[in-house]
Design a protein around this nucleic acid. Sequence first.
DNA 1: TATAAAATTAGACAAAGTCTAGAAAAGCAC
DNA 2: GTGCTTTTCTAGACTTTGTCTAATTTTATA
Lengths: 134, 134
Amino acid sequence: MNSRENIVNKLKSAGVTPTTQRVEIAQILFARPQHLSAEQILKMVNKGHSTASKATVYNTLGLFAKKGLLREVIVDPTKIFYDSNVSRHFHFFNTDTGVLTDIPVDAIHIDKLPELPQGTESSGIEVIVRIKNS
Amino acid sequence: MNSRENIVNKLKSAGVTPTTQRVEIAQILFARPQHLSAEQILKMVNKGHSTASKATVYNTLGLFAKKGLLREVIVDPTKIFYDSNVSRHFHFFNTDTGVLTDIPVDAIHIDKLPELPQGTESSGIEVIVRIKNS
DNA sequence: TATAAAATTAGACAAAGTCTAGAAAAGCAC
DNA sequence: GTGCTTTTCTAGACTTTGTCTAATTTTATA
Ligand SMILES: [Mn+2]
Ligand SMILES: [Mn+2]
Ligand SMILES: [Zn+2]
Ligand SMILES: [Zn+2]
């Protein structure tokens, strides 16, 4: 399913040249829907057979996000989470454990959206439910 | 209205000893509803008559947040915003300008809240509408 | 006023992320 | 394939936000 061939095609379709490093990073990310930080990905890549530098990992994650292959989730003040699930959904963030979990889109209903400030357009609505262990 | 006396009482009511530095920081913050970063506050304090160290500013903001006098808003991966409006409301975040703006609570209607993961309790729902200049 | 506890400080330190300049790889024309 | 250009990758310096430490100062209390 997420064979190397599939990943290569996914990158090509998004207009991203499938280099060794990018394919390696993509294989880790797109293996399943998950939330990973840049430093986690850096470590995971360098445990595998090929390697990538810090700069390449950061550049690649930024590129993937720009091309819509990844979603950046900003909930933890110390690091960005990269979400390999780019379909519309929301998040729980457990402040005790630092774990991010998905909330299916239909589990929350939002209506009566606010009027945007003059001269701006929306680039997405985020809902974060902060939770703690009880 | 927000005289020194008022600020001192506000801190005392929250169980915070009103030291010189804390009162100075509080006067800046509670002058009006606003969203400020720690570094902005540090600069503002040290332009005034009294001063405070970096460690004290960070400690004070953390303490105020813990005591419910401030709300931390995490939308910008590079810094925390401290919101002097602790009443329930949501935010626009303009990714082009870095400016955070309030959305009144009644401008968004959320129902059908998700079930929380086992063994957790909610500590607040955040809605962030990311916007960009059009 | 004496003592203990709480708060402040300078500056070292940590961690995430950015930048630079050179090396390597990829793409392209022939 | 060869040469040439453009893109990508890299190590490591650097930046920024934020934390920590150990000594000093302030505040609370008896
Ligand atoms: Mn940070
Ligand atoms: Mn950061
Ligand atoms: Zn997600
Ligand atoms: Zn606000």
